[in-house]
């Protein structure tokens, strides 16, 4: 694993463009200085449940028959604290609650119980203050597919208050740094590969200079080369741009290579949290192994299932079932 870490810090592609300087116009100098007085992220006993209705739930007076609304516990009593400049991984299988957790932090969901604070700002009560500090990359690169990377990113930059001229310069620099050729920047995104689209998604997040970056399985489905590019970029973000990163993944190697600490989530609950080394040590002792446990063994020991095995319910389907 140490070899992989070395590979990650030494990009294989010759770099001719460096990341642009962090832009601070969204956040005043006083606010920036105050950030160190708070945890980057403080999740305290958060729960989120979704009600999944049957297909005929619109019928009145119980005419829907035996189909009763089903309550799905997507996140249950989760607590997690992340300090500034940390990279913390949340490891879990599909449907374990990772994406719901990211949506709660992103102000896209309101917790049913508990609280989520980003640098001391509550996500439910101080939405706008939180939104200025965060950005997110999700597993699906969501864009207006008919528009080009430049048009999509310009839209995003304007929403965060970045002037158009500065935005254009930054977009060109960041996309070049991520290996996207200049002649593709004006082409519709629908003509790009998934890997390239994901890189544009990462560029979108970086463009707004987030203090807390939420990465929801950013490398899922990417080829090894693209995956490595993204991982190098993530590390660089933390090392040179002071970003705090919460990364959800079900890639054991990625979690170990990038994260200072790892939390394992299962059935909406955090079942373990430590450094990769600490988790290994605990499981090695628990299983009585005569060699260090692998992270896969760690995952299986805490969740009782293989990491490729999905939870019974896909959390994506648990949300918003009213059509």
């Amino acid at each position: 694993m140490a070899i992989l870490k070395d590979e990650l810090t030494t990009p294989t592609r010759p770099e001719t463009v460096t990341l642009p300087e962090r832009r601070t116009s969204l956040i005043s100098a006083a606010e920036l200085a105050d950030l160190d007085n708070h945890d980057a992220l403080a999740i305290r006993r958060v729960s989120k449940r979704f009600v999944k209705h049957g297909g005929r739930s619109w019928l009145p007076f119980g005419l829907a028959g035996a189909r009763r609304p089903k309550v799905v516990r997507a996140v249950e009593d989760v607590s997690l604290t992340i300090r500034r400049r940390e990279i913390v991984g949340v490891l879990g299988s599909n449907g374990s609650g990772k994406s719901t957790l990211i949506r709660l932090i992103s102000t896209l969901l309101i917790p049913d119980a508990g609280s989520v604070e980003v640098f001391g700002h509550d996500v439910a009560r101080e939405e706008r203050a939180v939104q200025r500090l965060i950005n997110r990359v999700s597993v699906e690169a969501a864009f207006f597919r008919k528009l080009s990377p430049m048009e999509n990113l310009l839209y995003s930059a304007r929403l965060y208050g970045l002037p158009a001229r500065e935005a254009r310069e930054q977009i060109n620099a960041i996309l070049a740094r991520l290996g996207i050729k200049p002649d593709r920047i004006g082409q519709p995104l629908e003509s790009m590969s998934r890997g390239m689209q994901q890189k544009v998604a990462i560029a979108r997040a970086f463009l707004t200079a987030p203090i807390l970056l939420l990465l929801d399985e950013p490398t899922t489905g990417l080829d090894p080369r693209s995956k490595q590019d993204v991982q190098v970029f993530v590390r660089e973000l933390r090392d040179t741009h002071d970003a705090t990163i919460l990364l959800t993944t079900h890639d054991m190697d990625e979690a170990e290579a990038l994260c200072d600490r790892i939390a394992i989530i299962d059935g909406g609950r955090i079942v373990a949290e430590d450094t990769a080394e600490g988790l290994r040590r605990a499981v090695t002792a628990r299983l009585g192994l005569d060699r260090p446990a692998t992270l896969t063994e760690v995952f299986m020991a805490y969740t009782g299932r293989d990491w490729e095995q999905d939870e019974p319910e896909d959390e994506e389907d648990n949300e918003a079932d009213d059509k």
């Binding site: 992103s106 965060i134 999700s138 699906e140 969501a142 207006f144 995003s156 965060y160 208050g161």
Partner: peptide, 12 residues
């Protein structure tokens, strides 16, 4: 397109 999440999490 899925951009609804990004628009609604922007500070606007």
């Amino acid at each position: 397109e899925g951009t609804i999440e990004y628009t609604f999490m922007a500070p606007v």
